[in-house]
Design a protein around this nucleic acid. Structure first.
Lengths: 366, 366
DNA sequence: TATAAAATTGGTAACGTTACCAATAAAACC
DNA sequence: GGTTTTATTGGTAACGTTACCAATTTTATA
């Protein structure tokens, strides 16, 4: 039966194919079946030829490839993915797409993926666990081969979900407390410690800590490093000088505009330096200084974290802690791809070092 | 036959299902067929219930939904996409992911998409036509519902490819010369004209034009606006003052370090202001000024284009032409989704206005 | 109660791909 | 020349989903 049916179809479609080639009419769906009909072969043979499987004879393969090229054929990755459980797609889940911090990481990842014919599916969780969960499920639904994720928290049901579904993942920004996972991160506590030590070394003892939303792991880590340095130097921790804000320019601006006028109102509200959990917050301090008319660093020393690319060009150039964004991207995608392509089944737990970049936003006082 | 076979399978899988629920063992593939077996219904019914199709009876639907929840079911979008030709995925193809210009656009698009349960597939073409073609084909292969693309050139085979394949697209950054397409853009020529007029108004007549790679449409457009303003003001165009560079900090830095020392060497190489096709290039000029030790704007006036978010905080704050990045994102994604979801089959050709943002990087001379 | 209408459910095929097996044709060997 | 091996090819089923149609059950109506 199928023989006969095929013959009929062949005749029928041969005609439309000729039309197709002649008029560049793309209305006909160009798929393997269609190429098989046009070339007078079968789906199997076409599939083999297109994939460069050497079991197809040279002449047949050439004929098929020529037709495929003429018809502008491209494979349907949905079908491929459905069958092979591979989509050549990597999910990236971040928390603050507007923060330039991530763009250097995204850029290297994109470059590496593009070279290897992978594509990236990009999502923003906005520090929201619900949204993060939704994004993870989307990734699972769309069958990504793996994800690179900056998790909202160091420990959550979402991380368990990833593990339970066996989704290949590399965590960045944090080291979740869990067995059998990959991460590439930087110790935010170390960064805060290093920064605080530097400020204290410059004579500052009243240091305003400007960190992210209180419930977030990054805020807790950063706070720990800050507290550790104060303690080490015998400086009492003043809770009035620990402020939580949205990590954006606006967030920093708002806190400083609220806090700065209080500086004179009493000893416990006084501060000579601000340590920010992100450069964006530090830029917010600059913004507030413009509005309130005080000078950085003469009236207030400012220290950032991340070392985003424009910090050298700020007025004044920002002293900050450098986070190895590019290296994080390179390492995380390498680990992920090694795992996906089965070159390496080990789990990697990598902590990279930060370093202090001294510029002009911190003044030595006595 | 299928009745009997089904019964057998039901018994077989019932067992593993119980295990599954009990031990939260996710090894068993949770799909519609499996839920049908567990719930004692059929694939059709499960599919209907999961999609909230009201043809399923209330109790059946509830039972199925409960089981789906317990089993942590999520749909396979590859299968869905293969069948429905809808993937709830939008492709974004840009040319310079590292340029902060795009952050704001990407961010609004991401927010809107996330709300509507779409995801974005992000690619960078790096101003390379070959890469752009590859990216377009990837988008087609992966069955995106539509793309937002900043094309490499205003006219190319790639744009024809998009149209011929019937891929829904909205062009940003440029208005390709073609019928039946959507675009949301800003006139780069107008921007350059406006900027040049401003510089001339400030007394500058020797203006160095620092634009992108010569063959790119953006460079040509920008050049046109610059030339138009010079001509209008009776200032002869000096080819020695038109420079093409990679639109990055490094690109700007290099050109200025090469050109600045030539300023004194002869009239034709002299310039008092630089007009940059992007703020990143302008930052490059700042970088060069640091290295060479001259002052902006006292020794050289600098003008940017884009008004990326950190320009107010640069030293000195950059005078630039504002491009409505957020509006471009909002409009383009709206047009695209209206088209995808069949609310609007019209083509939209939108040109948004730019405006000049005066800060402190241009000095009045006489 | 019989019959028509409506509600609910199940089976099937298709979306485009490829791994697997079987069938055929060509080449190699004795 | 006949037999075995090898190269090449084609058919089939499956991946997970849903639209469509048909079958069944329930409810409404005369």
């Amino acid at each position: 039966m199928s023989r006969k049916k095929l013959k009929q179809e062949k005749v029928k479609t041969k005609k439309s194919c000729d039309m197709d080639i002649k008029h560049k009419n793309e209305a006909v769906k160009v798929n393997i079946k269609y190429i098989a009909e046009v070339s007078g072969t079968s789906c199997s043979t076409v599939s083999r030829a297109l994939r460069g499987d050497n079991t197809a004879s040279k002449e047949t393969a050439e004929k098929i490839l020529k037709i495929a090229r003429e018809l502008n054929y491209y494979p349907n990755m949905l079908a491929k993915g459905l069958r092979d459980k591979k989509t050549k797609t990597i999910g990236i889940i971040l928390n603050d797409l507007k923060n330039p911090l991530y763009y250097e990481t995204i850029k290297v990842i994109e470059e590496i993926l593009n070279d290897l014919d992978y594509t990236m599916l990009l999502c923003d969780s906005n520090f929201d666990l619900k949204l993060e969960r939704k994004n993870i499920i989307t990734m699972l639904s769309k069958g990504v081969d793996g994800i690179i994720i900056s998790p909202v928290n160091i420990k959550s049901e979402n991380i368990e979900l990833i593990s339970s579904k066996g989704l290949n993942a590399v965590y960045i920004d944090f080291a979740p407390e869990m067995e059998n996972i990959n991460y590439v991160h930087v110790s935010h506590a170390d960064a805060a410690f290093m920064a605080t030590e530097y400020l204290i070394g410059k004579g500052h003892t009243k240091i305003l800590l400007l960190t992210g939303p209180e419930q977030l792991s990054v805020s807790k880590d950063f706070y720990k490093g800050y507290a550790k340095s104060l303690s080490k130097n015998g400086i009492p921790l003043n809770k009035a000088l620990v402020k939580y804000a949205v990590t954006s320019i606006d967030g920093g601006d708002r806190v400083i505009r609220e806090m700065y006028p209080l500086k004179q109102s009493g000893e416990s509200n006084d501060f000579t330096a601000v340590l920010c959990v992100s450069d964006m917050l530090a830029i917010g301090v600059y913004e507030a200084s413009k509005k309130l008319g005080f000078k950085v660093p003469d009236d207030l020393s400012v220290m950032g974290y991340d070392n985003i690319f424009m910090t050298p060009y700020l007025a004044p150039p920002l002293t900050t802690i450098h986070a190895p964004k590019i290296r994080i991207g390179e390492l995380s995608i390498k680990i992920l791809l090694d795992r996906i392509e089965d070159r390496d089944r080990e789990f990697h737990r990598i902590m990279l070092d930060v370093r202090l970049v001294e510029r002009e936003s911190v003044k030595k006082i006595n």
